[in-house]
Design a protein around this nucleic acid. Structure first.
Lengths: 401, 401
DNA sequence: GCTAATTTATACGACTCCTGAACTAAGTCA
DNA sequence: TGACTTAGTTCAGGAGTCGTATAAATTAGC
């Protein structure tokens, strides 16, 4: 029961034993192989800084777990001495499941160990927002489907639009879904009773931000802001490679940031960012009505298609500039990723935002780019989160099952 | 030469060997003893989660290093079995040095290993902003003074008002000091030639924020914003217990965040936060002139003493509310600490800010408090940074010297 | 075609570290 | 005085990494 009495940052770790060393070194090698490239043991030793003997031992372990294949010696470049036997990751035995729950739809992404997509499904909820039993049923369905392929799930993460307590695995408040103080992780873990499966919960914007930084338009970036437009507006922030959470998990809840003056907001105040640039803001700016049951992204696409969209959207653009420059000044992201309903509006938004951010201090300004993962973003990020414990060395791969 | 090819967050670590395990576990015990409390080995084992044998071994090592003293068995409560022999940290042999360099003054704080202040000195620079040689001379002076007490320095960190590249130990740009692309850490390390001394550079607001979270008004908090008013205005952010840096180290550079409309700023734009709430903003609001050579804090104190300060400062308060709520919404800090020139104005600012932040989502709102470290903040934070590698387990204590 | 140089991979011994159990030490309580 | 309880140390066992030595597989050169 390791416990550290003082609140400590991520860099300040608790007690450890030697087996953690192996976990960490294994994770280093896994990360080197994650992209599917084939490497020799000697390569891995050089790249990781580990001794050859250590690499040999770890690769042996991984082979035994069925996670590594010896690729037939495909020697391209000449080279002098004995050619290495290449190994590459075989991700088919393990997977991560990501489920994005929203008011009117649910999206499921299943990624294999290498991060390759096994399948993605997006379906509308039958009637009204779902309860946790429906999420459980869906999770079980996809878990079974995964087991049928002979793979096992390392983790399952649910992305929820709301306030999350990640350490408790609780949805503190998801007003759109009508969920409050919902112990979702525990409930799913109990309902699935799949030993070794780690169930987690996270905010949808946080998941989307993680996805964009690992597989999307901001791949490789450790500092980025993901802005998502739905009916409302929210942000997910990756800072220093980690999701920024804040003291209560509210970091990135910027919908009610004051970026204007008059426009009244549902929250009672005026000038809120989401009142100006959320769906209601788009309606106010363009006069275009939302069709019954229309998706915010579809609506935004119709807005973008208006002949005089650029001029009509001026107040929206102004609000976005105020909001984004504020966030960017405080957080200094390398990229601002526009997601959700902002994707169809990217042609109008990106130039204006890049210009506003270009006048930065030194060096290149913050980039602005539309999400490349689109509707997949949150569920992919959730699935990546399910794999993260393994790649970060917090967890070792389970014995073959 | 451990190197991990992919940019990895703090939680994603490089390769490790068994000696790192010892470093980490030692750090766990050091943190438990840091506050000066005396504990028995058995207590330490229970609190840390380590085995008794391990605790015994580590405490033995630390005793040999002269870092731990066996306190005479002061048994207060009765208790049943054999009483434990208490040990406590003896910080006198090791210290961290923090130097805050500014345009017109320099502050030095030396903390012993337990974090207790050995001395603090604040002196004005003779004429004009200093060069790096003057910082070197000062560092050598305090290092000698420390050595004279029989202690050795674990690290020396310099807090600089400007843009820092921490991994390079470089001051990228400190316009007030006239420093550009200055390899300060290397220069000091070379000039001091004190083996084992780790020299680092950091931004002054970041250091101050760290100090407030470890010893100041926000002690124990892992998420806070430190706002400092000088002639300009800047913020240091602690998120998840770590300093938030951003992609280029510019995180927290919020002086030119747009919080108003008209007030022209030196940067050419209008409505910048520092134009409204920096020293020029105070002058504009109150009409009170800055005396020749007057310190921003002293000037702010005179402003606060004006009979009609509360009404005169209304535009300043409004700007602060806009800026602080923006930062707080994005970052969700537990506390906003007001430092520098905002300390004398706290009576006016705190109620207004707390009210604006109180209307939060759920739970208690963000606290607002004036800095309790005042002028010490940045240099104390720098000194704490110098001790941090030891307490975080990244570095082991040097053999007795 | 043979040999030397070069590189890969494994085997092995040395070393570090943590752990649990056994054991000794030093008290309290009856 | 003796039973009980808690503290601290010793020791064997297991897990890890590392460097060196060794075997294996090629290429380069003659």
């Amino acid at each position: 029961m390791p416990l550290d009495p003082r609140p400590a940052g991520p860099r300040t770790q608790g007690p450890a034993a030697t087996d953690e060393v192996r976990r960490r070194n294994t994770a280093v090698l896994l990360r080197l192989l994650r992209d599917g490239s084939a490497r020799s043991r000697a390569d891995l030793a050089r790249l990781s800084g580990l001794a050859k003997a250590t690499v040999g031992a770890i690769v042996g372990d991984l082979e035994e777990l069925g996670v590594i294949l010896e690729a037939p010696a495909a020697r391209d470049e000449p080279g002098r001495g004995r050619p290495g036997t290449l190994v590459r990751l075989d991700g088919r035995r393990h997977a991560g499941i990501g489920i994005e729950v929203n008011v009117d739809y649910v999206a499921v992404t299943v990624l294999d160990l290498t991060g390759a997509e096994l399948w993605f499904e997006r379906t509308a909820w039958g009637a009204g927002p779902p309860g946790t039993e429906q999420v459980l049923r869906l999770a079980r369905e996809h878990l079974d489907r995964l087991h049928a392929t002979g793979a096992s799930a390392l983790g399952l993460t649910v992305a929820v639009p709301g306030l999350i307590d990640r350490s408790l695995g609780q949805v503190v408040d998801a007003p759109n879904l009508g969920w409050h103080a919902e112990p979702l992780a525990d409930r799913l873990a109990a309902g699935l009773s799949s030993p070794g499966l780690v169930v987690a919960v996270d905010n949808d914007a946080n998941c989307a931000a993680r996805a964009e930084s690992l597989q999307g338009v901001a791949v490789g970036e450790t500092d980025l802001v993901y802005l998502t437009g739905t009916v409302g507006l929210g942000a997910g922030v990756i800072a220093g490679g980690e999701v920024l959470r804040g003291s209560r998990g509210l970091a990135g809840e910027v919908g009610h940031l004051r970026v204007g003056t008059d426009q009244p907001c549902a929250c009672g105040r005026t000038g809120c960012w989401e009142a100006l640039a959320g769906q209601r803001g788009l309606v106010a700016a363009t006069g275009l009505e939302v069709a019954a049951g229309e998706d915010p992204v579809a609506y935004a696409a119709r807005v973008a298609a208006l002949p005089d969209a650029a001029t009509l959207l001026e107040p929206v653009v102004a609000a976005m500039v105020r909001g984004v420059t504020g966030l960017a000044l405080g957080l200094d992201p390398a990229v601002v990723v526009l997601g959700g309903a902002f994707v169809p509006l990217a042609d109008v938004l990106v130039p204006a935002l890049e210009q506003a951010l270009g006048a930065g201090f030194t060096g290149p300004g913050t980039r602005v780019a539309p999400s490349s993962l689109g509707l997949h973003a949150a569920s992919v990020g959730a699935a990546l989160d399910a794999l993260d414990a393994t790649y970060a060395g917090r967890r070792s791969l389970p014995r073959a099952g």
